[in-house]
């Protein structure tokens, strides 16, 4: 049990009478990437919000480490779990460094501000994701891809073992998507971070797997986790047809040094 980062047991959540998900159970192992995919509106974000303590589940329990998060204060939870939002609304032209320093909030008392040690940690975080040269730029003037890296640096500065990412590549171009994925691989491999990530791109799971990162994939649909397992078990043509009503083809290819695997959508299933 010691190697589990997060345990979700029979969790259900509803907004008033509208049930979003029910009886969801899964474990996230330390040092793995746990991907959640599923159609729009299937409840992915709500599920992540519950693990982040932003929403409270109605029944069941969520353990982070060995601690039930039901009664955990935001500060204690933030020391274990950090968050990278899908989009971050940039309202004031703070400097990049100021934003990354906010990752130190849980360790900073209410009437004080980050000290030189915190600044060193923030600097290391920026270095890690390769944005140190942006430290003094107003973060309203950097690109969307760079901003997402700032969010990751902020999460790193938080020094929690788990980072939750909600569709982190949703607004990124081809190259920035790859930069983000490489950063995630890097964090899991070198900093031993556990990543829980909602994504719309099934192939992200194959990307992590073929980079030799321990990867688990959960397929969410209609408020339940329909399939869960390693990417190969979950992401096959059959399941994709069932969940998305799409005909697809699983392609793998040996590049010599590396193996790549992708599932390619072919056509929409016509009603039989």
């Amino acid at each position: 049990m010691d190697d589990l980062a997060v345990q979700v047991k029979n969790a259900s959540f509803s907004y008033g009478k509208k049930q979003v998900f029910h009886d969801i159970s899964f474990n996230v192992k330390k040092g793995e990437v746990f991907c959640i995919i599923g159609p729009n509106g299937c409840g992915k974000t709500t599920l992540l919000d519950c693990i982040l303590g932003l929403l409270k589940i109605n029944t069941g329990e969520i353990l982070v480490g060995k601690v039930n998060i039901k009664k955990t204060k935001p500060q204690e939870l933030a020391e274990r779990v950090a968050y990278v939002p899908q989009t971050h609304e940039r309202r004031f032209p703070y400097k990049v460094e100021d934003i990354v320093l906010m990752g130190r909030a849980s360790k900073t008392k209410i009437f004080s501000s980050p000290n030189s040690e915190d600044k060193e940690i923030a600097k290391k975080a920026m270095e890690k994701v390769g944005i140190l040269e942006l430290a003094d730029s107003p973060y309203t003037q950097i690109s969307g891809g760079q901003c997402q890296l700032v969010m990751i640096a902020r999460a790193l500065a938080q020094e929690s073992e788990i980072i939750i990412m909600d569709e982190p590549t949703a607004h990124l171009d081809f190259k920035n998507e790859l930069i983000l994925l490489e950063t995630v691989v890097n964090l899991v491999r070198e900093n031993n971070i556990t990543v829980i990530m909602a994504t719309h791109f099934p192939n992200h799971a194959y990307y992590f797997e073929t980079n030799n990162i321990p990867t688990t994939l959960a397929l969410m649909n209609n408020g339940v986790l329909e399939k869960i397992g390693n990417p190969g078990e979950v992401l096959n043509e059959n399941n994709i047809r069932q969940i998305y009503s799409i005909n697809s083809k699983l392609i793998d290819y040996n590049l010599g040094k590396r193996f790549i695997k992708q599932i390619v959508p072919l056509s929409i299933v016509k009603d039989a």
Partner: peptide, 20 residues
């Protein structure tokens, strides 16, 4: 004053950054 920085990230992010 420094907490106001964190609060200006919005409720969701401020909460996940660890402040009530």
């Amino acid at each position: 004053r420094w907490r106001i920085n964190v609060l200006s990230m919005g409720d969701r992010e401020a909460h996940t950054l660890g402040i009530n």
